[in-house]
Amino acid sequence: MPTFVIERQRSGPFSMPVNHFHDHYEVYYLVSGKRYYFIQDRSYLIEEGDLVFIDRNELHKTHNVDAQHHERILISFGADLVDDLGEHAVEHLLVPFTQKQHILSLTGTNRTFVENLLFSMLREQQQALNGWELGSNALLTQLLLYCSRLVDKTSAKEARNHAMNPKIFEIVAFINEHYRTRLTLTSISESFFISPSYFCRAFKETTGFSFIEYLNNVRIREAQRLLRETKLKVIDVAEQSGFDSVAHFGRVFKQVTQQTPLECRKLMRQVK
């Protein structure tokens, strides 16, 4: 992906694509409306004026609170943008990501200042004047530094167990810990003493994912890590990621990442 992308979108009822984790940072600002935002193993009610910080390779998804329209601004940027600023840039610019403070709720002058930066970035991109990339990067650096300083002064927004049994979050944590083992709808329903139909409905309402979609994403994310960090054969990566067969692993991997495991490994080695 390009080093830095910013986009603004107005939309009615909408859920993000099923398979959503990636190797870049993301900042999401809700201009108006309300959204549920599931991040890793928690769910948040996002309201206008909220900034959301998604770290690299964090599983996340937004979905509807109601049928009302919402407007958001989304920034995506690669690690190279921060690395190019020097060895101390991560320490100063990525505090919301490194401290896992996913949500900053902005009011008053803080909100005005951040919105001015965001709309300035959009104008730089739209007008594409000479040197607009440098201008956009400078504004993003200012935004990240401002938000990193705010983290120490602002209380984190609490995760909200919306419209469901808190047991669903227990199940999410269980999946995150035991994804390497054989997990089925029936086995989890029996282990947590809930009916399969209720489990399917409540899991989808809470996370935005179906059970199988979520499990596959967790397993594929681990497979990508193994492909990047080890020299394991693909068949061993499949087994250690929780897949029963290498053929099934290959199909799911391609569905989630749009690449084969070998293509993914080759690309990762080229990037290093």
Rank of each mutant, 00 (worst) to 15 (best):
E170K: 11
E170F: 09
Q99M: 11
L30F: 02
E205Q: 09
S43T: 08
P261S: 03
Y28C: 04
K61N: 14
T257G: 01
A128P: 03
E91P: 00
L74E: 04
S76Y: 12
A247V: 12
I75S: 09
K272M: 13
S241E: 02
S191L: 13
F113Q: 07
T112R: 15
N19K: 01
T206H: 07
F53P: 15
T62Y: 04
D23G: 13
S189T: 08
S105M: 04
F97N: 03
L139V: 14
I39S: 06
H178W: 14
R8K: 13
I175G: 02
H92N: 09
A163Q: 03
R269L: 12
H20R: 13
F113V: 09
D84A: 12
D50Y: 04
V237A: 10
H63Y: 10
Q127T: 13
L139A: 12
V52N: 02
V5N: 07
R123A: 12
C264Y: 07
A156P: 02
Q40L: 03
I103V: 13
I194P: 00
Y28D: 11
Y28W: 07
H248W: 05
L51D: 14
G135C: 11
I188Q: 10
L85E: 15
A223K: 08
L30H: 02
P2R: 07
D23K: 05
D55K: 14
L118V: 13
V95Y: 05
F203E: 03
I175K: 04
K204H: 01
V65F: 06
A173D: 14
I175F: 05
D66E: 01
S120D: 14
I6Q: 00
Y179S: 08
N130H: 11
Y37M: 09
F193G: 06
V114N: 08
S76N: 14
S76W: 05
F249G: 02
V218I: 15
D66F: 00
E87D: 12
H24A: 04
S155K: 11
E205W: 05
V52Y: 02
H20F: 14
K204A: 00
H88M: 15
L145A: 14
Q142G: 15
L85A: 15
R160I: 03
V218A: 13
S189C: 08
R123M: 06
N137P: 01
